[in-house]
Design a protein around this nucleic acid. Structure first.
Lengths: 272, 272
DNA sequence: TAGTGGTCTAGACCACGTG
DNA sequence: ACGTGGTCTAGACCACTAT
């Protein structure tokens, strides 16, 4: 009854006599301070579940143990693991399905794709797109890329250039930098043959799951080289989207610069 | 023990005999289907609290009754109102402050301002800005504006044009349309004298609180008139931001077209 | 010291998806 | 019929803020 994962003093249950309620965190006699580093139990459980996700104990798309099972495993009540799972579901790491179970989120779901490419046609419809690989090579990180990927300058990186076509129109040009260490086996062939979202391949083939990203958006005039690839005149206004994506532990694992043609399409954002 | 707000059949407590579990919603005899319109208790409570917010029973910045008080008022357990408040806090309608109470959110808070103007300087800092009123007049809604504001064409609307200056540089040009009925007393004088965010004035003076908004973002070439006001050459690439803001009940109450100069500044977006 | 939100538990019952 | 997540309750205790 007292083998909690990290322990924050949690022994309720009027078992033997002893009212027992030793209260929080400090251990020795005079009690240094009330709670220097207090962390709720459900947060600790959340951390443990996250570890299992990161280690691959439960893979994307798979079901995880039921709430009762996890409660038994961690020696806490069902309500506590429930609150932990609630937050992980809110963070898009898990997906609950009533009557079935709780599943590890994956970038293959319809819903997940829109989170990272928010381009809609003027009529509001979500158009399918095809990717055309332009380039994929390994090189040494520039100072700027190294900084953003938390690498050392001249560390190996992979550079991918690709074109996204909506209804046959070239609409998005992407330059993608990935840390060479993590994406060791990534080749142009593998990229060319793969259908579906890049992030789905990353999580399936390289065990690297994109959790969140930040984007810096600007309006810029198309440089000649870019304009050429996107079939617009030089100087044409483009949306410039600088993205950094993070995986578990908020470690950056992708830097991406995109140019979007926004005639007929727009970037959708919800402020809520 | 049985005066619940909407009733979904919820009488636990082994009181008298009767197992009692008449189950959900349908009223007449043969019971159409198991639960055609099931809504959890806490959702109903959430609705009741929202009504009180909308009606002005608790105003922005004010404290609302404690969880125990609300539980007594609605005849439910504290845990149920807690879950209702949790969601309202997640929706940014309420703000919880441990040890103090729960408060009605307001657009005056530091935190709230960034939700609706996500422009940061290249160094990542959030710069203060001043607003310069260019125009404020009443007119009849065009077909397009009427549609977006859910009005009839030629209904009265207010049009505001203003310039936002960051560090003295003209950076944002806004055209704002508001329904004339709701914003009856809005004048250029009132606008000119008011310091602070527009939305803070709207909620204080007109009882209209912006809850959420959607934005459609494009890159466009500056038209001469716009370019002139923003001190950029005609044809300069600008961020075009089309916003529709909604209040309680998802009713649209503002349409806004903004042009942003993104040299030295960028639009920040978080995908999570 | 008292009041507020925050955490944790334990148990009952409901809705949903399978057999 | 059974197992899963989803709702609801009741009560205990903790952490924070004010008086």
């Amino acid at each position: 009854m007292n083998a909690n994962p990290v322990s924050n003093a949690n022994s309720s249950a009027p078992e033997s006599g002893a009212p027992a309620s030793a209260s929080g965190s400090s251990t020795a006699a005079p009690a240094a301070s009330p709670s220097p580093t207090f962390s709720p139990l459900y947060q600790q459980i959340k951390g443990l579940i996250t570890q299992s996700l990161e280690s691959g104990e439960w893979k994307p798309g798979e079901i995880i143990p039921s709430e009762v099972e996890l409660a038994a495993r961690y020696k806490v009540s069902q309500g506590t693991v429930r609150k932990a799972i609630d937050e992980l579901a809110a963070d898009n790491l898990l997906v609950r399905r009533q009557g079935k179970g709780t599943f590890v989120a994956t970038h293959n779901e319809e819903r997940a794709q829109f989170r990272f490419l928010r381009l809609l046609a003027d009529d509001g419809a979500e158009h399918p797109h095809v990717s055309r690989l332009l380039e994929c090579r390994r090189l040494r990180a520039s100072a700027e890329i190294a900084r953003q990927l938390d690498l050392k300058p001249a560390d190996p990186v992979v550079l991918i250039k690709r074109l996204l076509q909506f209804d046959g129109e070239s609409t998005v040009l992407d330059e993608i930098w990935l840390p060479g260490g993590v994406f060791r086996g990534l080749t142009a062939e593998r990229l060319a043959e793969y259908k579906g979202p890049l992030y789905a391949m990353f999580e399936a083939d390289f065990g690297t799951r994109m959790i969140r990203a930040t984007e810096k958006i600007r309006a810029v005039a198309a440089e000649p080289a870019v304009a050429d690839l996107l079939n617009v005149p030089a100087g044409f206004p483009l949306l410039s989207v600088d993205r950094v994506s993070y995986t578990y532990g908020d470690r950056p694992v992708e830097v991406r610069r995109g140019w979007y043609v926004t005639t007929g399409y727009y970037y959708q954002n919800d402020l809520s």
